[in-house]
Amino acid sequence: MLAHFAKGIARAASSAGQGSRGAVVFGQRAYHEKVVDHYDNPRNVGSFDKNDPNVGTGLVGAPACGDVMKLQIKVDEKTGDIIDACFKTFGCGSAIASSSVASEWIKGRPMDEAVSIKNSDIAKHLSLPPVKLHCSMLAEDAIKAAIKDYKAKRAKAGTEASQSEPVAATA
């Protein structure tokens, strides 16, 4: 683990050498201002009722760093647009900032578009150093998991509805 960590430092140091603006202070790695902003003022923190049929919940984790991330979406069932999103993340600043950005970006977007958000887009937006790329990966996985959960829920509700229809007709 130490070797892994040291590699990360070395990589961060080499990227610092290339002059990534604002990411390095006096040779010591610091968070980019955008990360700090999202960390201090996270957008859309909260929870939706996970039993709401219009809500999809993505729960993902990165055991290596002990991060756990919950991202929820509220979907307009007619248009398939994500009308609202919220998240709750326990983890490092980069993980919180990544999920905050993700929740902002997916709001108002159709699900098909939201699912195409790449972790590299989030990482680029936040200027995450290489060692923190997995945090943005977690956010991407959370979006995908939330949409998958929503679709699974709708499919299940659909089959249940079709099953209950004949019962309703006979009653």
Binding site: L59, A62, A64, K88, L138
Partner: peptide
Amino acid sequence: NIDEEGTIHDPALLMEIM
């Protein structure tokens, strides 16, 4: 190499931790 294990989706564990 457990350090490089990616995202996990185990809902029971993640819910408990959350």
